[in-house]
Design a protein around this nucleic acid. Structure first.
Lengths: 195, 195
DNA sequence: GAATATACGGAGTGGAGACTTCGGATGGCA
DNA sequence: TGCCATCCGAAGTCTCCACTCCGTATATTC
């Protein structure tokens, strides 16, 4: 893995490239070209390849960054006093900004990347953090106890992908989420209002 | 749109190309090459391009065929005497073989296609057929009445994409479906507005 | 304000893949 | 069986894009 460069301009460029890459690949998927990233970042192509020797590696870096952020968000929510809302909040937030973000992960896997492999600790950490969120929500009686992380994961990814794919207006998205939340709620106490 | 060719060999080739293309693009997405389609179909590249002047057009033809089949399935289920199971059956079936099929649609949109545009009547017909399924299931009291086609569509696409994307084992997939089905079912003391 | 290691940019290079060309084969019909 | 319109395939062309080379610029250090 490329170490942090020592010169200030190099560090700045590296950061800017990562930033732009997230946007560009989020929009165009893996079909977007490295050259466009370079142009929008205001650097030459060579600079991009100096920092990230391969398009694949660049994508990986973007994905890692993304997982990091998600994970931190989940961890901070896990410290909430209100585990039920925290869980559903996280779910809703992920879905809300899924549109561009998912395209990045797709781009990464399209390019032959394995999210559970080299992409580092990210996905595992995120999974763990969501697991904590889930367990606490279940302990608090806000989520049915007969489901596990796998199912939640499936739903999370699924709804995100749906939202990213079809043009759902605000209302329809909220509705779809509501259906899933109702399905996640425990049988009898599912009438409790959620944030 | 290319008209059906008159000579028998040409018709046969066209059919075989379509068949193979569905499999190839289902596996490799839009990244799969036209050349591979030709090779597996046992014809030259030129033959593929003669029948489908553009990769995009080939993808479109595959997608149209796919929607046609889905639509017919929905229509035949819509005539069932048991609207509730019919609806959930269709849902489950779609999800079950989503893996390869979805990649095709993705490939099509990746290549700049618009599923709701030129791809013809397919998606609209399918939507309508699902609408009938839904309405009948609602009339039979098997599905809550406060949701519409948009939400069902979102869930359908979402779960399909989730299943196609992550490697869910049989059990986890069934669980995820169960959650959604629970969410779709009518509750008794139903309403309580949530944000 | 030099010296120098570090970083930069633009002009290549090579390969992959969508699409074309054209001489040759062949199904369909008399 | 023989004619010919239709169809086929191998060998291109052309464009795009990931990745490299090398001469130039500039942060940093003294």
């Amino acid at each position: 893995m490329a170490t942090q460069p020592t010169r200030a301009d190099a560090r700045g460029n590296r950061a800017r490239i990562l930033e732009v890459a997230e946007e560009v690949f989020g929009r165009g998927g893996s079909a977007a070209s490295t050259e466009e990233v370079a142009r929008l970042a205001g650097v030459g192509i060579a600079t991009v390849f100096r920092h990230f020797p391969t398009k694949q590696i660049l994508l990986e870096a973007v994905v890692v960054r993304h997982f990091d952020r998600l994970c931190r968000r989940a961890q901070s929510l896990a410290e909430s006093d209100d585990p039920g809302p925290a869980f559903f909040d996280f779910f809703g937030q992920i879905v809300a900004d899924a549109a561009g973000k998912l395209a990045i992960i797709e781009a990464f896997t399209d390019a032959g990347g394995d999210v559970n492999g080299k992409a580092g600790q990210g996905p595992r950490d995120l999974r763990e953090a969501v697991g904590v969120l889930l367990r606490r929500a279940q302990d608090a009686g806000a989520v049915r106890t007969d489901i596990g992380l796998d199912e939640v994961h499936a739903l999370l990814v699924g709804v995100s992908r749906a939202v990213a794919h079809i043009r759902l207006d605000e209302r329809a998205r909220a509705r779809a989420l509501e259906i899933i939340f109702d399905g996640l709620a425990p049988g009898d106490s599912w009438r409790q209002p959620r944030s």
